[in-house]
């Protein structure tokens, strides 16, 4: 290769940035907590009944906050209504317009029947909500998949990776919610340990699957074509290495996995600490994907 120096080019403008990463994180948490909520009311796993109501409340509230970050990011937020009248079937953002409208509405109906004690309708709207919850987070993966300028994003891995990390962060949040609620808002202050163990088991397998997907992704990028290799090097050895390797992978996935699978130390504080690390890890993952993906200039 010839020695060459870049003397002049126009620096690339950031297209997505931090607000979009936060948006992805919040929709992920919402989808995750919604699915936990339906375990009891949709599928009849009685163990998770204590999380049914709080799960749907959190899912709804988060999904109402999340689109605010889209408005903050957008240059012309007052034109958001354009999204409803000018549609483009090939744009995932256009799909999202409807998912982001239908999903919270369904959450509210589902929650209404749950609080009313109507088991049949709760189950119905819970089951309708599951594909919606999966789509509302899956579509955010497609947003990145279709942004083909960036090697890290233009991959069919994005939707499934985003769905898995959504469930990971959602279950971790539910562990924290269980601990906080039982400790502070019950008379006995006794934490429901059986529930915690159930969530812990779920988190274990989700973390294993998430690690498999994330390491496959980075591995294939590293041995892939030029732009893929460059962005993988950025995450593995470059400016993003402390965030990707340490904060996201080691502290956010591997270490918590060890904590929740080590039987001798299994306790409420350990579960809480592991869940907190996972939540920080997934937030870092969103930032790594969004900011790392568009970090390398294109020309």
């Amino acid at each position: 290769m010839m020695e060459s120096v870049l003397l002049y080019t126009v620096p690339k403008a950031e297209s997505f940035g931090v607000a979009i990463a936060i948006y992805f994180y919040l929709t992920g948490l919402s989808a995750g907590s919604f699915i936990i909520s339906t375990l009891a009311y949709g599928f009849g796993f009685e163990k998770y009944k204590p999380l049914g109501k709080i799960g749907v409340v959190i899912a709804t509230v988060l999904l109402m906050i999340a689109p605010m970050f889209l408005l903050i990011h957008s240059g012309r937020p007052l034109r958001a209504w354009h999204l409803f009248i000018y549609l483009n079937g090939t744009s995932p953002i256009s799909w999202g317009t409807f998912l982001l409208t239908l999903y919270p509405v369904n959450c509210i109906i589902y929650g209404y029947f749950m609080f009313k004690g109507n088991a049949v309708r709760t189950k119905l709207f819970g089951l309708i909500g599951i594909p919606l919850a999966l789509m509302v987070h899956g579509y955010t993966g497609f947003i990145l998949s279709f942004a083909k300028a960036h090697a890290l994003w233009r991959s069919s891995m994005m939707p499934i990776l985003f769905l898995t990390s959504a469930l990971v962060s959602g279950v971790a949040m539910m562990i924290l919610v269980t601990i906080i609620r039982d400790k502070l808002f019950t008379k006995s202050g006794e934490v429901n340990f059986e529930l915690l163990e159930g969530l812990g088991k779920m988190l274990t397998w989700l973390l294993v699957f998430d690690l498999f997907l994330s390491l496959s992704d980075i591995g294939v990028h590293y041995f892939g074509e030029a732009e893929s290799h460059e962005v993988a090097s950025l995450l593995l050895f470059g400016a993003f290495a402390p965030f990707f390797l340490v904060l996201e992978t080691l502290m956010g996935k591997v270490f918590p996995l060890i904590l929740i699978t080590a039987k001798p130390i299994r306790s409420v504080p350990v579960y809480g600490f592991a869940a907190l690390l996972v939540m920080i890890g997934i937030m870092t993952m969103r930032l790594n994907v969004v900011l790392g993906g568009e970090f390398i200039p294109l020309l």
Partner: peptide
């Protein structure tokens, strides 16, 4: 009509937007 979402910028391989 543009809402300034920046998606076109994220998709353009030539970063001209």
């Amino acid at each position: 009509r543009c809402i300034g979402c920046g998606y076109c910028m994220a998709a353009c391989p030539y970063s001209v937007r």
